[in-house]
Amino acid sequence: MQEFFDFFSFGYIQRALISGISIAIMCSLIGLFLVLRKQSLFGDAISHMAFGGIAIGTYLNIYPFWTAIIFSASSALAINKIRYYTKLNADSMVAVLLSFGLGIGVTLISMSDGFSVDLFSFLFGSILLVSYEDVLITVGMVIIVTSIIGLFFKKFIYVTFDEDQAKISGLHVEQLDYLFIVLVAVTVIVSMKLVGILLISSLIVIPNIASLMLNQGFKRTLFISIIISACSVFFGIILSYYFNTAPSGMIVLLSVGIFIAVIISKYFYQNINIFSNTSRIK
């Protein structure tokens, strides 16, 4: 037991838990809107764009965090603008973004010295290596993103629910869309440190689809999703420490485990209900 409490006294564990849970909250918040817009893979696309942005930063010797944000947000905005005019499906545009980001990344890496350790940490995450400054940046970004979402909360819900009705009610749908894309880009890039580019959509999508299966109202769905996400991160980090595995993988496996548990519980709950109703009829 003492060993368990000692675990929390390690500075790097404290930093990992604080930044991890902050990121879990932010990903659930942004992710619920993405899932409901049927753009679950948009986060994945942005993260691949970020890969291109990181490669640009590495190639030009600029801090990759900033090039990733600028490159992925501006590309996503441009692609969204193209979608408005061409009326192409969102999933097709996701495929374009995804390939474009990877294409740029791979090309620039092949022009430099190949893969570096840093690039691998962006690809697969390195939450146990976050510094005190990283924690400050992460928590700061989470506060900014959640405040902006909070400020426009009802408007974002309305646009997600029905774009046309939102327009009739006087909302500036296109501007809200652009703001949302920038928030997605910031969320994905801040979260990359935790689970890495390749696994980012797990934190954005899985807790939300598990929560949606419980058929609750919007605020409750969001709350449950945040709990699932935060628990996955918290216990994922603890388990990875004890089993000496990669935390990002453990976090993803745990969230998938919770998702499967929700499916099974729902199945049994419905069958028990049907069984008790049938007994009553008899």
């Binding site: 058929n215 605020k219 769905t221």
Partner: peptide
């Protein structure tokens, strides 16, 4: 299938 209660939905407008 959108997760909105009736009250939340009416309040949106």
């Amino acid at each position: 299938r959108f997760p909105l209660t009736i009250k939340e939905l009416v309040s949106l407008s």
